[in-house]
Simulated scan of single mutants.
Amino acid sequence: MKEVPLKQAREQLGKLHSDAVHGNHIKITRHGSDAVILVPEADYQEYQALKRERIEAAVVAEIKHVAPYVERGELPPGYESLTREQIIEGDRLA
């Protein structure tokens, strides 16, 4: 992965864009940190899809975990119940 300081990236944006379009990942840094990565849109879309899949898998796993408790009318371990009044008063928020 090519690493480019922000100042240089400003001067070479067209070339960096072309490099990224052709599959190269470009790491742009500001004062050696605060890095961002310039990637082809297809790579970004793939990353977003993988991220969504991971989130969906976590949600499905959580549903499978709590479903038996909910079906029995029980509160799953690690969960708590608040009344409407507690929520309105802001209890347990933040």
Rank of each mutant, 00 (worst) to 15 (best):
L93F: 11
G32N: 10
D91Y: 12
S18F: 13
I37K: 11
I26E: 08
E62L: 03
R10D: 04
L75C: 07
L93S: 14
L75N: 06
V36R: 14
L93G: 10
I28L: 06
I88P: 01
S18W: 15
S33L: 12
R30I: 05
V36E: 14
R54M: 08
L75K: 06
P77Y: 04
L16E: 04
V4E: 06
S81V: 15
G14Q: 08
E89D: 11
Q45A: 15
L82M: 10
E53P: 01
V66E: 04
G78M: 08
H22K: 12
R84K: 06
I88M: 09
I28D: 01
K51P: 02
R84M: 03
R72G: 05
V39D: 09
K7S: 09
G14A: 10
E56N: 12
E85V: 08
I88V: 14
Q8S: 11
K51R: 15
A67C: 11
I28T: 06
E80C: 01
I87R: 12
E71R: 14
K7P: 01
P5G: 07
S18I: 13
V4A: 09
R52W: 01
L75P: 00
D91S: 02
K15D: 14
Y69C: 07
P68Y: 05
G90Q: 07
A57V: 02
S81F: 15
V36C: 13
R92E: 13
A94N: 13
E89R: 14
L38H: 05
V59A: 07
D34I: 00
I55A: 12
Y47M: 12
V70E: 03
I37V: 15
V60Q: 08
I28G: 03
D43R: 09
